[in-house]
Design a protein around this nucleic acid. Structure first.
Lengths: 210, 210
DNA sequence: TGAAAGCCCGCATGCTCATGTGGCTGAGCA
DNA sequence: TGCTCAGCCACATGAGCATGCGGGCTTTCA
């Protein structure tokens, strides 16, 4: 039996959800809250449920902030967001904080029930519009993987630079002379079109060269 | 009328898809290919379609590699992946390359048709299992946002460091004395537990401090 | 009302860096 | 055969760096 908690300030909607979920075999809604604070209080001394249906856009503590707390105290508990918002920032924050599903409140109770089952079965239910948002953010944040024609050895040295080592340390690490490291740095600077190690490291990390 | 191209090496499946999509109002499957190479050749001289249904796991050029080419030549064309694979690496690469949907071949033709409509309407259809994969990757790659208690001014200077500026330039940029910048750098080094600008920049970029 | 913390400035010292110049080897290509 | 290019080494010099010390002024909060 999978236990579910609901956090939702709209009393009528909350009760409807509860009733519908309890009518399902294998699902049991054991607790419900009208604020995130109360949920956190309950988490402090009771066992966490398998899944939490969480309204973001609650009065008081933002549901978004709540996700982090939940994930800290009960990392295994699945969190399915229930919201009227569909904007990038909200979605982004929820996803980063570790939500496992993202539903719109306009969804039917059938859809919500199905989503709960999906999430429990290892899926991440979300509308395709929200999925698009997530994918867009992904491509935006993914490293660019530019190519400056660095050789393997050059990349190796660049990588060591990004760990904060100084020339001498790099030389020792690779059993080379500092002069040799010097030579590589020049070439790296030339290829990356920078003239300081800081610039090189910044470029390497920003563009995923290492 | 939305135009669709299909890239799929299994001839029978390709024809079925084509027939089903053409039976839909508003959709028209104008071309079909049994390899990625042929698709790219067609893209070179013909107008790109609105959407491409792409099989990854084709003989010859990988469909995955094909995505990048398609996105280069026709950035606006939506790409919906059709695959038997569900492993992290494939999904990750497809998502990074800019796919707008990710379907399993076990989907019914009705589901595929619906997915095509979803994608054209601005969504990113995918199964909830795949969505979970994407979300997991997202949390894995998202900046950690560690907090070292840096002040605003310190962050500002750290940020300027990540652009490759030297002390003097930072001082000029903020109309400060180099000595003041020195003082900040000390504090930043102390807080980040590093002792070179390279280390500071690396830590800042790796942990999303800026 | 006094301590703490953020912001700002100064100087000196020794270390590290960037960059100029030069050289040697071996692999691969034309 | 001669060329380029990656990899390695060397030395010198001026600029830039980290870090030691010192000071001041304001805001915040207990």
């Amino acid at each position: 039996m999978n236990t579910i908690w609901i956090v939702e300030d709209h009393a009528a909607f909350r009760r409807t959800l509860e009733r519908v979920l309890n009518a399902e075999t294998g699902l049991q809604c054991t607790r419900d809250f009208d604020s995130c604070e109360k949920l956190l209080a309950a988490l402090a001394h009771d066992d966490a449920p398998h899944l939490i249906l969480l309204d973001v856009g609650l009065p008081g503590m933002s549901g978004l902030a709540g996700i982090r707390f939940i994930k800290e105290r009960a990392p295994k508990t699945l969190i399915v967001i229930l919201t009227v918002f569909e904007d990038d920032d909200k979605v982004f924050q929820a996803v980063c904080a570790g939500a496992s599903g993202y539903l719109l409140k306009t969804s039917s109770v059938t859809e919500i029930t199905q989503a709960v089952r999906d999430a429990l079965a290892g899926g991440s239910p979300m509308t395709s519009r929200i999925a698009r948002r997530v994918l867009d953010m992904f491509t935006k944040f993914a490293p660019k993987h530019s190519d400056y024609g660095l050789s393997e050895r050059e990349k190796e040295i660049l990588q060591l630079m990004t760990t904060g080592l100084i020339k001498k340390e790099i030389a020792d690490r690779l059993t080379l002379s500092v002069h040799t490291v010097d030579t590589y740095l020049r070439r790296i600077y030339e290829k990356l079109e920078v003239n300081t190690r800081t610039g090189a490291v910044a470029k390497a990390l920003k563009e995923g060269l290492v």
